[in-house]
Simulated assay, not measured.
Amino acid sequence: MADGSFPKPDQPLAHRLAHRAWDGFEVALNRTDAGKHTPTISPLVRMALHVGPAVRADCCVDDVSRSGWQSPGDYDLVPPGVQGQWEDATEALVMSFRFSPELMARAAEGLDARPGALTPQMRARDPQVELIGQALRAELEAAHAAPRLYGESLGLALAARLAARAAHRPPPRLSALTPRQLRAVTERIEAHLDEDLSLTELAATAGVSVSHFTVMFRRAVGQSAHRYLMERRVLRAQALLARGGRTIAQAAGETGFAHQSHLARCMRRMLGVTPAQLTG
């Protein structure tokens, strides 16, 4: 188990291989040395997901100890204000997550769960937690970062899953965004396609909580807000290039893509053509 904290001088190291931070949470991919790790107590919710080969480990969280093999997909959870430490027999590859109390509170809305209700977990397993972790690892290792909306959606989904498991009940059923709410959100997206929109901004536009917005938008449109945003960017770029007078790089910049190769990759995947074919 690891959280990326700076070790004391006499501790083995956690070597950070990749790191990203979004609104309310951050994730890092770490390769930790063999030995005993004792990070400082934190006000954040910390989770570690094991993604490398199995390693023999002795873990202790809040005076609860457990020994055995940590296998890929196992995760450890350390609630706020709780001391955790572990000792690995060999080096390990671990994804560490940190969630703010504010994000956990948003994720727990409607679940009758609070961040304080989380209990320490060691060598826990959950297919949904593992799948979200894999998606975040792919984002960490991607050559070009996806829009902020994508990472925030994954972080909120992971926090909500942890909160739901703590509440021992599934998330509540939610209706779709109303036509008026959906129109306000899609108009905002259209007006700011070149910006790195956040879930908080879109949820505020709809007048709902962030945790509810992700579900309600999908039910209204049939896809995630991130997927919708990317499709609208690609279609806007297609229209700009078809109209003429812009280079591929200019069209990419005006529609929020990091560069023209990012636009080309997304356009090929969604439309089956490349920007060069539209301008050729």
Rank of each mutant, 00 (worst) to 15 (best):
H144T: 08
E231T: 08
P179W: 14
N30Q: 14
W22N: 00
A203D: 02
R219A: 07
Q121W: 06
R183D: 14
T279Y: 07
C60Q: 10
A276Y: 14
E87I: 04
L263W: 06
F257N: 02
H262V: 13
V208K: 07
A138F: 09
Q260V: 07
V64Y: 08
V64D: 04
H168L: 07
R66W: 05
T214D: 13
I248P: 02
E254H: 08
V234F: 03
A220E: 06
A242I: 11
Q83W: 14
T214W: 03
P172G: 01
D10T: 06
A105E: 08
K36T: 11
A164L: 00
A21D: 07
R31K: 15
P120G: 00
S71C: 11
H262M: 12
V78C: 15
A249Y: 08
H168I: 01
A18T: 03
Y75P: 00
A89E: 11
A2D: 06
A146M: 06
H262K: 09
P9H: 07
V273Y: 12
S198V: 05
C266H: 13
L235M: 08
L29C: 05
L154G: 00
A176V: 04
A206F: 02
P101C: 13
H144W: 10
M267P: 08
V273L: 15
Q70Y: 05
M122N: 01
W22Y: 15
R169K: 10
V185F: 12
A28E: 04
R148P: 01
G73A: 13
D58L: 14
V208C: 04
H262W: 13
L49A: 01
T32S: 14
P53Y: 15
A143Q: 04
P115T: 03
E91G: 10
Q223H: 04
P170T: 05
R66K: 14
A163N: 01
A89S: 13
S42P: 01
S153C: 06
P79D: 02
E187S: 11
P79N: 03
P179V: 07
R161S: 00
S96V: 07
R16V: 13
D23A: 06
Y228A: 03
V51A: 03
L154F: 14
V215H: 12
A239H: 08
E102V: 06
E254C: 02
T178W: 07
A176T: 02
Q85R: 06
Q83E: 09
A167K: 02
C266N: 10
T186E: 15
P7I: 12
T247A: 04
G207W: 03
R269F: 15
A54N: 04
A124M: 08
G253V: 06
A105P: 02
L271M: 11
R232S: 04
L193T: 03
M270N: 08
M1V: 07
P275D: 15
G84K: 02
D33W: 01
E195C: 12
A225I: 03
D10P: 04
A146W: 11
T279Q: 12
S153V: 05
Q85D: 11
R46Y: 14
D23K: 09
G244L: 08
F99Y: 09
H168F: 05
P7Y: 12
M216W: 01
G272N: 12
A135P: 03
M1K: 06
F213R: 07
A160Y: 05
Q121R: 15
A264G: 04
L240E: 10
A184N: 05
R165I: 02
H144Y: 10
L156S: 04
V27R: 00
L154C: 09
V273E: 14
H144R: 03
P12D: 15
